[in-house]
Amino acid sequence: MLYKSIALACLLLSAAPQGETLVTKKQFHADTFTTFGGSIINDVKIGYESYGKLNKQKDNAILITHYFSANSHAAGKYASDDPQAGYWDAIIGPGKAIDTDHYFVISVDSLVNLNANDPNTITTGPASINPDTGKPYGLSFPVVTIRDFVNIQKAVLESLGIKQLYGVVGASMGSMQAIDWAAAYPDWVPRMISVVGSGETDDWSSSLLEQWAIPIRLDPNWRQGDYYASSPPLEGLTAALMFITQAALSPEFFNQVASTSDIDHQSSQQAILQDIHQSPAIVCWLRERAQQRARLMDANHLLYLVRANQLFVAGHQGELAKGLQNVKAKSLFLPASNDLLLMPYLAKRAHQTLLALGKQSELIELEGNLGHLNGVSLISQQGDKIKQFLAQ
């Protein structure tokens, strides 16, 4: 049914056929980590997953950088009876576009990962215990940037003896990490793929991101981030996730949801006519899914992710052209034509900037009715192009 495929998309999971690869979460530990802003974080723990085998030369590694609400579970399953495989299982695996018969594929949980309460996520952030106080950091945790996500990934790779990547591929917030990798460490990155991505966060995008933070800050349970010994701000977090989900989809998609028999639109209209406390059926549908996801997430972590995205410009040198001038990677941009979150002009701007700097870059638009989520659930439509690009 249409409703079932829609529900999977709204959970930000791939609706593609699931693979049989079984994976385990591994943990990386650093005694200290210095942020891009100059702060020191002690006792950093980060999770990661890998697929395929690292060759003797250790030069076949492809890094997958994940999107805002994801973690490192990019492919495979933790157990054979898991209902869902990783979000890009359609293109990662034996014989697939990112072929694990040839490549060692690795993905790393971000710092301040949104899924802080998920047992399959390992991350250090505001919800973590500050070893200096024995209490959760809360808002005393330092502000982090996309570059910090890149640098913790680099530390994980170096711990495995990897000194250069074969390529880096990421969607959405992951695309920001991918292009920043190419800008910050050009000798590491010969190939970069940006899916539904951006080279910088402009004023429009920064304001959109702020909408996700506002309901959390207005929730009385937020308590200026000091809620770990009391009730968390789940109402604010749920509202934020509703905004995120709607922005990640398209009007066409929402109208299709509302037209299915699973949503009793007519009864809903009667209910909201009679009672101001009632909500339209589509809003209830959206809220229910946000509530389900909120249980595994942390509100403060969302605020820190918002700020990291608001601060982003590839290369972190203030200007996009300046930040991209040292890029050596061949680049492939795959924006979604109807993306309302990271609109196609953002990828086109980065692509055109690279071309103006004399770099190699291609751009192909993804199609489909999922908007931003075309880059997750419908990524297989460009599987052949991704495979071809990586083979070059």
Rank of each mutant, 00 (worst) to 15 (best):
157 L>E: 04
134 G>T: 03
342 L>W: 06
290 A>I: 06
47 G>K: 00
343 M>R: 15
198 S>L: 15
226 D>M: 02
90 A>C: 10
275 D>C: 10
24 T>F: 08
321 A>N: 07
282 I>G: 00
322 K>L: 15
14 S>N: 01
235 E>S: 11
373 L>V: 07
11 L>F: 10
229 A>R: 13
196 V>G: 00
270 Q>N: 05
90 A>P: 07
365 E>F: 13
370 L>V: 01
249 L>P: 02
212 W>F: 10
383 G>E: 07
49 E>Y: 05
180 D>I: 07
90 A>Y: 06
45 K>N: 13
220 P>G: 06
87 Y>T: 01
293 R>V: 09
309 N>V: 08
123 T>D: 11
330 K>C: 10
384 D>S: 07
332 L>T: 01
241 L>S: 02
257 V>D: 00
228 Y>K: 07
300 N>Q: 09
283 V>S: 05
246 Q>L: 14
1 M>N: 14
197 G>C: 06
121 T>N: 08
15 A>F: 11
190 P>C: 15
2 L>R: 12
264 D>F: 13
47 G>R: 00
43 D>F: 10
325 Q>W: 11
256 Q>R: 11
65 T>N: 11
244 I>W: 02
167 G>C: 00
133 T>E: 08
365 E>V: 12
119 P>T: 05
229 A>I: 13
46 I>W: 03
268 S>M: 07
368 G>L: 05
106 I>H: 02
320 L>R: 02
67 Y>F: 15
251 P>S: 05
95 G>N: 03
98 I>A: 00
248 A>S: 15
139 L>F: 14
336 A>V: 07
377 S>D: 14
97 A>G: 01
187 D>V: 04
82 D>W: 02
83 P>V: 06
235 E>C: 11
270 Q>V: 06
315 G>R: 04
333 F>I: 07
249 L>M: 12
201 T>G: 02
379 I>Y: 06
104 F>I: 03
334 L>I: 09
181 W>I: 04
103 Y>S: 02
301 H>A: 08
162 I>A: 01
335 P>F: 02
352 Q>I: 07
248 A>H: 08
162 I>H: 01
245 T>L: 12
54 L>G: 10
279 S>V: 13
60 N>L: 09
152 I>V: 10
263 I>Y: 03
99 D>Q: 03
318 G>L: 08
146 I>L: 14
53 K>E: 15
295 R>Y: 13
286 L>D: 00
100 T>V: 01
131 P>H: 12
303 L>T: 03
214 I>L: 11
340 L>F: 15
242 M>H: 05
264 D>N: 15
254 F>W: 15
352 Q>W: 07
331 S>K: 11
169 V>C: 04
382 Q>N: 13
23 V>M: 04
325 Q>H: 13
234 L>E: 10
54 L>H: 09
131 P>Q: 13
70 A>D: 05
101 D>C: 06
260 T>H: 07
320 L>D: 00
32 T>W: 12
382 Q>W: 04
52 G>S: 08
15 A>V: 13
212 W>G: 03
51 Y>A: 09
197 G>E: 03
313 V>A: 05
277 H>I: 11
373 L>N: 09
87 Y>E: 01
94 P>N: 08
47 G>P: 01
98 I>G: 00
270 Q>I: 06
